[in-house]
Design a protein around this nucleic acid. Structure first.
Lengths: 170, 170
DNA sequence: TTAACCATGTAAAGCGTTACATGATTTC
DNA sequence: GAAATCATGTAACGCTTTACATGGTTAA
């Protein structure tokens, strides 16, 4: 799936591997992110498959290798975009722990729920700030909807865990 | 993390690899599941590390290899249980697609949202049925809470996507 | 009798992260 | 002059799935 996301970013403009990584950190980080050790080999493979072309340029004394998407790349991306998505497993470590909380002392459960709620709050706040920044740029409505989804999602998660904390504190 | 979940199941009673897999399918499937190709080697490693002991028995002509958790295994599990959980990335394929929906035709977007909403509904229904079954057994309250969390989660997701569908249909 | 289920395991392959390696420029 | 950032890449490792391999029992 990661290769499709790379293609997705390149649908808009040509980019370097570094730029893709940095853009991800500032936009898809809450639902998707990856390492350089994944990005560069993926770009190489996509180029070998004919879905990308690259051009090298020296900018400020540094090598800049920009990738552009080809017609076949666009086709592959659009086909993927129209496919049905599988229901995702939640795969949340906090939820895994929760399942086994009968083996943990009550005060430790309360501590853990507290700190997790705090981090969920921070996450929603960080994303709200990001949203404000994005409003100044012309950002497409689906990207904005994704971000809003993320903010609502973490807010919902926070409320769910707060409800549980309240239940057991009583 | 998977090894901790195996230990978690064995905290309650001794089990075979097969039983762990089947129990997962019926309880943690919505947030965690795995393959036999992961379970059996994990059990082997945990035994080698001294966190489990095994006993073999022939039952109905079939080999049954049951694993029991040791004191060191319990210690490892409890330490993990008390650790802080990282905020999970959403990593939902549907959300990844949504982010790039500006590249998809409106009617195809509507189709995809429709089918995804349907599958989210089915998921919540399946889990609600599971919950009813569980009520007949003495299931501990945290396992029940996890299941309830899952039902609410998929209901929330369905509503979020329905809201989006409504917004663009107008 | 045959399909489904019980039951255990290995090997190969895929996917992704972390660590390593390098070196220039820019900012403090 | 040091630290941060820009920029590209490889190699080793780890985790997990899929496919393969085997063989008994139970229910339709």
């Amino acid at each position: 799936m990661f290769d499709k996301i790379v293609l997705g970013f390149l649908m808009e403009r040509k980019m370097t591997g570094y730029a893709i990584k940095k853009t991800m950190e500032k936009s898809t980080n809450f639902f998707f992110n990856t390492s350089y050790g994944n990005i560069y080999p993926t770009l190489k493979k996509l180029e070998e498959a004919g879905h990308l072309t690259s051009e090298e340029e020296i900018k400020n004394g540094k090598l800049n290798k920009s990738y552009s998407i080809t017609q076949s790349g666009k086709q592959v991306f659009r086909r993927w975009l129209g496919e049905n998505s599988d229901i995702a497993m939640i795969r949340d470590e906090a939820l895994c722990r929760l399942f086994f909380f009968s083996h943990l002392e009550k005060d430790k459960i309360i501590d853990e729920l507290h700190s997790y709620i705090g981090r969920l709050e921070t996450q929603a706040e960080t994303m709200t700030k990001l949203r404000k920044k994005f409003q100044n740029y012309e950002i497409d409505s689906w990207k904005m909807k994704s971000l809003d989804f993320g903010i609502d999602y973490y807010t919902y998660m926070r409320k769910s865990f707060q409800k549980m904390l309240k239940e057991i504190s009583e």
